[in-house]
Each structure stands twice: as C-alpha cells, then as structure tokens.
C-alpha cells in the first residue's frame, strides 16, 4: 500500500465531509466567515428567510421578545421597527416582513457586549406581519405584529 496515497484519500474524505456539512446547513457559511447571507435574502418564504439567516426555522413565540412597529404605516417605504429582548445571551436578530417578495429585511450578529436591541426602518410592500426572530442559547424566539400599509414601499 502506498502511504502517500492513503493520506491523500483520507484528506479528500475529510474535505468532502466538511463540504457536505456546509451544504446541509450544519456549518453555516455566513457564520464561519461573516460573509453575506445571500441564500437567506434570496428566500421567497418566511421559513427560508429564518433558517437561512439563523440556522433553523423552528421558532417559538415569546413574551421576552418585544417588537415595536406602527399599527398603520402610511408609507410602506419607511416603517420604523424596533426589536428588543429581555433574555440574555442573544447572539443574532432577524427582522422579517412576511408580505415582501423577499421576506428577510436584515439580520444582525451581536457580540457579547451588545444589548439585545436593534432599531431600523424597513420597506413593506403591503399589509402583512412583521416578525422579529431572536437567537439565544441556540434557540429561536419570535414576536409578530401585523402592520397595515396604505402605500406600498416596493415596486411603483
């Protein structure tokens, strides 16, 4: 048996298995390199947006997540959204607008120094649910609020 050949085969097998882990989402590429979550933004459904940005689509509604958004947005192009959470160890927050062509608006990676708080302004194409998903201790917690939009912010 050629020793060098054995080594090459082993290395190839390892590289292959690591690549398949990335493919199945066990190792999330954007968490490894901090690169842009292209797939998550390309997702056309809410579950794809959540799993693409936070690693799993399973989330449970929680009173610890606070989502502040207007009841009625007169202008869908500028809808202020504020997400905060009362739990500790929050590592990531995603803000999702269910009715948009691409539901994921933005996702935030928080260091341990960060308070679980993000405030921004998003576009909404039409009246729909706004969903805030917070990742803490490996689990996802969410808060949902319907925002009525009188003038859409996409298209036109």
């Amino acid at each position: 048996m050629n020793l060098l050949r054995r080594k090459l085969v082993k290395t190839a097998a390892f590289v292959g298995s690591a690549a398949s882990l990335v493919g199945t989402g066990v190792l999330l590429p954007q968490r490894v390199l901090g690169a842009y979550a292209t797939d998550a933004f390309a997702a056309r459904d809410v579950n794809g947006a959540i799993s693409g940005s936070l690693g799993s689509a399973e989330h449970s509604p929680s009173d610890s997540v606070k989502l502040k958004a207007p009841d009625i947005a007169e202008n869908g192009a500028v809808v202020p959204v504020t997400v905060s959470a009362s739990m500790s160890n929050v590592v990531a927050i995603s803000i999702i607008v269910a009715g948009n062509p691409g539901p994921l608006t933005s996702t935030y990676t928080l260091s341990s120094a960060c308070e679980p708080f993000i405030s921004t302004r998003v576009r909404m194409a039409k009246t729909s649910d706004v969903i805030a998903v917070v990742k803490a201790d490996g689990k996802l917690y969410s808060a949902t609020k319907e925002v009525k939009v009188t003038i859409g912010g996409c298209g036109g």
Partner: peptide, 23 residues
C-alpha cells in the same frame, strides 16, 4: 473590536437608520 455586524437586503429603507446598544 467588532461589537455588531448586520446583513441588509433591499428591504431596508432609503437613507438607512440603525440603532443598537452595547456595554
């Protein structure tokens, strides 16, 4: 030292506003 990073899509409003807090 990095405290926060964000990925944004096209659904963030024009002239974006962002607020966050850290200790």
């Amino acid at each position: 030292k990095q405290v926060m990073s964000a990925n944004w899509g096209g659904a963030i409003s024009q002239n974006p506003y962002l607020s966050f807090k850290f200790k």
